[in-house]
Design a protein around this nucleic acid. Structure first.
Lengths: 137, 137
DNA sequence: CTTGACTTCGTAGTATACTACTGATATTAT
DNA sequence: ATAATATCAGTAGTATACTACGAAGTCAAG
């Protein structure tokens, strides 16, 4: 079939990780077991690639591999479990909104620092970034 | 003096970490060496507390301890180094803006999922969160 | 002035997330 | 057909960030 076009080395290169990492993700069930042509080499498709790119970025954003697994498993499988999924998704949403908020605060302080930095002297003593914490209260 | 009011156990409790973590941060120079009354127990003040709270949250936001160290050291020490500080701060700012952007995308998809989740059936096959990657291009 | 909780330092152990290595087998290019 | 390159499974090792432990010293209440 045409869609299984990447070998492990190829897809891991595109996704910016190495082959061992991909095997590791398979081992911990963060990635599904890929197709094997004649039961040998692993072959991957576009959906696998999207998933890997998502994992990489989510990791950079501070989610653990377990949290990423949860995010990726969020979907409505039947009306029976729909409430649970909604609940979990709402929980994740709150968490993400708080993250955005805190990053905005850090951004504000950094911007201020950059603007002050037209090379007037400011205090050596105080660390400006600590204002972030104050602005939260 | 009045301002050195926290012992290690007290401040670590308020900051939501344990005493060993604080000693660890001191060891890797993420926290400064605290005052010692009669050269024994460590004593901390409000600035130390703000710093610890910042560290904790920055960690949750996906910054490594080294990155946090860099953020905390951002300040204008003299007009000589001002350019460097500005450069580094601008770099960090870009990084943070990208993080906010990506989190907004995740937020959008999660909100959509929650809204769909008024218990109509949607596809079992597709993982909605993968749309995040698509919406980035 | 004792008793019990807290702190000291150093070192060893743990969890997460890889990363490297080995020797065998498979695929691909010439 | 054969040489170069890729992949295989399994296991051991590494980096980061803690976390636990032990034995001795310190402090504060009754």
């Amino acid at each position: 079939m045409e869609q299984y076009k990447y070998k492990v080395g190829e897809i891991s290169k595109i996704a910016g990780m190495n082959t061992e990492t991909l095997r590791y993700y398979e081992m911990i069930k963060l990635m599904p077991k890929p197709k094997r042509k004649e039961s040998h080499y692993r072959y991957y498709d576009e959906i696998d690639l999207r998933r890997l790119l998502f994992i990489r970025r989510a990791k950079e954003l501070g989610f653990t591999l377990n949290e990423i697994k949860e995010l990726l498993n969020l979907r409505i499988e039947s009306s029976a479990t729909c409430g649970d999924v909604k609940h979990l998704a709402e929980h994740k949403l709150k968490d993400i909104e708080k993250r955005i908020d805190d990053l905005m605060n850090i951004k504000k302080v950094l911007s201020k620092l950059i603007n002050q930095c037209v090379c007037e002297e400011i205090s050596t003593e105080e660390c400006p970034i600590l204002e972030v914490i104050d602005s939260q209260n």
